[in-house]
C-alpha cells in the first residue's frame, strides 16, 4: 500500500498508508543532528537563552516524532486535538502553579526565623 492508493479506500482508511522509507530515515537523521546540536549548544553559556534554545530544539524534535513517526501529520484531526489539547492542559497546570509559586517570598530557614523573632 502506498500513499497514492489510499484514496481508493475512501477517507475511512486514511491512516492506513505506510510512510515511505526515506521519510523515516530522514527523520531519524534530523533527530540525531538536532541531538548533536543541543549537546553542542550546551557547551556555551548563552545566559538567558540557554533554556529557550534547549527547549526549542527539544520541541522541534518532539514535533518530528509526533508528526512523522507517530503519523499525526497524516492522521485524523481528532488525534491531534487530543494530544495538543492535553499539552494545553499541561501548560495551564504548570504555568498557574509557577505563577502562584513565583509570588511567594522565599523560604525561611530556622536561622532566619530565630533572627526575626529576636529582632
Amino acid at each position: 500500500m502506498t500513499a497514492t492508493d489510499h484514496a481508493a479506500h475512501g477517507d475511512h482508511h486514511e491512516d492506513h498508508h505506510a510512510l515511505p522509507l526515506w521519510m523515516l530515515v530522514g527523520t531519524w537523521g534530523a533527530l540525531m543532528g538536532l541531538t548533536l546540536l543541543t549537546v553542542f549548544s550546551a557547551q556555551f553559556d548563552l545566559g538567558a537563552f540557554d533554556l529557550p534554545i534547549a527547549m526549542g530544539i527539544a520541541t522541534i524534535k518532539a514535533m518530528l516524532v509526533l508528526l512523522i513517526f507517530m503519523h499525526l501529520g497524516f492522521d485524523k484531526g481528532f488525534h491531534s486535538l487530543l494530544i495538543f489539547g492535553s499539552l494545553l492542559f499541561v501548560f495551564l497546570f504548570i504555568s498557574f502553579t509557577l505563577m502562584d509559586r513565583g509570588q511567594y517570598q522565599g523560604d525561611i530557614t530556622v536561622k532566619d526565623s530565630e533572627k526575626l523573632l529576636s529582632d
Binding site: 498557574f96 505563577m99 502562584d100 513565583g102 509570588q103 511567594y104
Partner: peptide
C-alpha cells in the same frame, strides 16, 4: 493556604 493574591484573583 497562603496562595498568592494574583492567583486567588484569577
Amino acid at each position: 493556604s497562603s496562595e498568592s493574591t494574583l492567583a486567588t484573583l484569577i
